[in-house]
Computed example of a mutant assay.
Amino acid sequence: MLVSRDLLVLLMERTGDGSKISIRELAEEVGVHPSKIGHLRTGEQKTAGRAVAVGIANRLGVDELVLWAPIGRTVAAPPEAPAISEAAA
Rank of each mutant, 00 (worst) to 15 (best):
G38N: 07
S35C: 05
V66K: 14
D17T: 02
R50Y: 14
H33I: 00
I21G: 03
V66N: 11
A51T: 13
V30T: 02
E29C: 01
D63H: 13
L2S: 01
A48R: 02
G18C: 00
A83R: 15
E28A: 06
I84E: 15
R59Y: 08
G72N: 06
L7Q: 04
G61K: 05
A48C: 10
V30L: 00
P79Q: 11
R73D: 15
R50Q: 14
H33E: 06
V30F: 02
A51P: 06
E80K: 15
A77Y: 15
L10K: 13
V54H: 09
P70Y: 12
V32W: 09
L10G: 09
L26A: 08
D63Y: 12
G72D: 07
K20G: 05
I23M: 10
H33G: 03
M1Y: 10
I71Q: 14
G31R: 02
A87G: 14
R14G: 00
G31F: 01
I56L: 03
V75Q: 15
T74P: 08
A57R: 07
L40I: 07
L60H: 08
L65E: 09
M1L: 10
R14A: 01
L2N: 02
V3N: 07
A88V: 12
P34W: 10
E28P: 02
A53Q: 09
P78N: 08
T47A: 09
R14C: 00
R50V: 14
E28W: 01
E29I: 02
P34I: 07
